[in-house]
Amino acid sequence: MSDANPHPATALPDPASALTPAPREAIRVENVTCAYGRNVVLRDVSLTVQTGEILVILGGSGCGKSTLLKHIIGLETPRSGKVYIDGQNLTDAQGAARRNILAGFGVAYQSGALFGSMTVLQNVMLPLQEYTPLDAPARELVARLKLRQVDLEQYADYLPSELSGGMQKRAAIARALALDPGILFLDEPSAGLDPITSGELDALIIRLSRVLGLTFVVVTHELASIYAIADRAIMLDKSVKGILAQGKPADLRDHATDPRVTRFFNRGAV
């Protein structure tokens, strides 16, 4: 967000966003506690994401990044707290209202999660078929161009099981992008991708955010990717069970006081 705060690498909730008047909130997470059974993974997490912003969530393996994502997108119900998507309360929404909110965002899961019985093309066409009035040839063309964007044009008619791990990942991203939804959640999109493909994916994310105003929440460990795309980064930590620091990646790297943050941005050195 803004550079107003010289030490943004402090803590909860982003002070800049409270001061800036206009931009709409795409996501608001209020005091959410995430737990599996008795295992509390995150406690009292609050954050907001502005429309058009690219937020990166980072942190060590097992600190609860995927868990936070699952709670934001409504796959898991928070133990306490609320999640608002585009101003609507997702946590308490039911039935048609809930489906409406869900249609407003796309998700690419850490494991791909393509439908195994459908070809890659059919996977990408499925949301178009369910949510748009486009006719069949138009849907197919939209889907094939999405696949061209992730460089899978020639593999449209393959089954997911016939693709490599990284290719499945890219196909999943194409499916998440199919509707150009207002908000996109990507869980480690570049894990398993080579640096060139990963760079192209970063460029695609930035273009979509700048031109179409899409909001992104991206979980990633790739430092290069974090510097390239993040408007703001949030670092989670296991020991505090919550947000350790947040701010622009460069500020976090240069000004963070917490050694855990500095270590992360200097690749474990220090």
Partner: peptide, 18 residues
């Protein structure tokens, strides 16, 4: 801004399908 998106799709190249 839309022209950049379109250019990136390489619109003069036909789709390669298997």
């Amino acid at each position: 801004r839309y022209a950049t998106l379109l250019a990136q799709l390489d619109p003069t190249t036909p789709l390669k399908t298997a």
